[in-house]
Structures are given as C-alpha cells and as structure tokens.
Design a protein around this nucleic acid. Structure first.
Lengths: 134, 134
DNA sequence: ATTAATTGTAATAATAAATATTACATTACA
DNA sequence: TGTAATGTAATATTTATTATTACAATTAAT
C-alpha cells in the first residue's frame, strides 16, 4: 500500500486539534510532504464529506462534522485503493483448474478480511484517537 | 501492497492439490508471471518452512507439512512487507505537537489492526481454502 | 560418465506507481 | 486592487515491482 492512510490520519488529527482553519501549506509542513500531495488528499476528503474548505484569503480547511461522529473506518474508506491483502496484476491461466478459480476465492477472502478490519476501525472515533495527543 | 500474498496463495494451493512435486516453471505457467519471481517466492516460503524442494532433474516443490497444519495467517506472515494500513515515507515535523507523536500512535493502531487480521486469517487452514476448488 | 531437467541466485532491464515540482486560474478577504 | 489562499493540470523525479538474461549447482535418467 502507499502512504495515503497515514497522511489522511495526520490531516484529520491536525484539523481535529485545531481551533481555526488550517492551510494546506501549514499541514504539508507538519506532515513534511509536498503541499500539492496534501491538497490532492484534502480534495479527496472533501469529496467524502469528511472535511470542508473555505476559499480565498485566510481560507483553509476544517472538519465537516464533530470528531466524535467520524470513525477511523470512514477515513480508511476514503483513501482505500486496492486490496488489503495485495493485488497481483497477473491474469492466471484459465486452462489450469486452480488458475481458473483462484481469483474468485481470493476475492472472497479479501472481502471477508476487509470487513473484519472495517469493523475494528469502526470502533474508534477520530475524537478518541486525538485524545492520545494531549 | 504488492502481489506477493496472492502469488503465495496460488503457489500453496497448487502444491496442496498436487499429488507430485511441481516445478517452478509449471507454477509460473498457472500463475502467469515470470518464473524467476516464482522461484524467489518459493525460496521465501522454504525459508519460512512452509514448503520444501527437491533439487536436480525431476525435482520440484512440495508442502513441508499437511495442509491442515498450515494457516492462512502463516502464509500471510511469510510474505508481509510493511504495514497493512500503509506506510508513509515522510518524516513528520518534530517541531509540531501532532507531527511529533503521530507515528507512535499510528504504529499502535497498525499493530492492533494487524493482530485482528492475523486472528481472522488464523481461522482458516490451507486445507479448508483448497476444498473450495473441488 | 554424460545428458538433460531442474533448483537457486545474481545482475540488470523494463514497467508501473508514488511523490515532487512547476505553473497558474480562481476565490475572497482586507 | 493586492494578497493569501484553494483547486487542479501537466510534467518530472524517484521508488517499487516485475521481467529478463545468464549461469552455477544438483540429481535423475539414459
């Protein structure tokens, strides 16, 4: 996987603990990645209605609802890209009895694991996560 | 993540359902990836004592113990590389109160989720997985 | 003994994915 | 009107993954 979940969590934690809007440049400075990457992730988080923005001078970003109403599962779902257990890009040989069926069975397993993980992540709110930073 | 778990599962399923040793070239043909990639993964699975090899002509690979004694968690642990929830390669700004602590808290979360996932994968044996292919 | 099929592994190349950079249009406050 | 910010496209760079080539070592079969 890539660094999107850690970066999204960093963003959400910053916004959760801030008492005013934060700029993408400020957040990029805390995360220490390129500001455009942060803005892309902010765009995505807006699309998933987790945050909102204020444009123009003195603009910035803020949470779209109370942190107690945002679960880590929601954040994960906003950034998830591909399978938890990995995604091979091969196309197994359909002439082989195993190759013909393996993807279907792996997909079932993947769905099962992902649901387990979402249940677990759903147990923690952003508010609870941010309490650790006191 | 990458395709190592799917490929390892494909290998283990082939070996589980075979009644003789299988060559890396045969398995590469079923998986449809480069034979050297398969041999590298086979090497790794040997290192984790999940399979063993017979060298020389007519050689090949076979399971190292009954499929009922191999769990999907064991296979996952043999191939896992990095964090389930993603690994950012940035170094957060230590001058920021959030940046200073975020990695510690994300690592705790990661460990928690990974344990949940291993518990779930531990519930299924390779033998049970392979029964689906009848 | 010799041959051939195979494991095992190193070195390199090619491809794909992630991240960084540059640029600039748009917005809204002061 | 100037300025600080969002929003986004285009491109470049870096990193990770997969493929390829090559060949030494091993062992069964002839």
């Amino acid at each position: 996987m890539n660094g999107r979940f850690p970066i999204a969590m960093h963003i959400m934690t910053l916004l959760c603990t801030a008492d005013e809007v934060l700029s993408s440049d400020y957040m990029a400075g805390s995360i220490n990645v390129n500001p455009v990457l942060v803005r892309k992730e902010l765009s995505n988080l807006i699309k998933h209605r987790l945050i909102k923005s204020q444009q123009g001078k003195n603009g910035g970003y803020l949470l779209n609802r109370p942190a107690a109403d945002i679960s880590l599962a929601g954040i994960y779902q906003a950034v998830r890209s591909g399978a938890i257990l990995g995604q091979a890009k091969n196309q197994p040989n359909p002439a082989c009895p195993i190759g013909r069926q393996i993807n279907a069975h792996l997909n079932t397993l993947e769905a099962d694991i992902e649901q387990t993980m979402l249940n677990k992540l759903g147990n923690t709110t952003l508010a609870a996560f941010c309490k650790k930073f006191e």
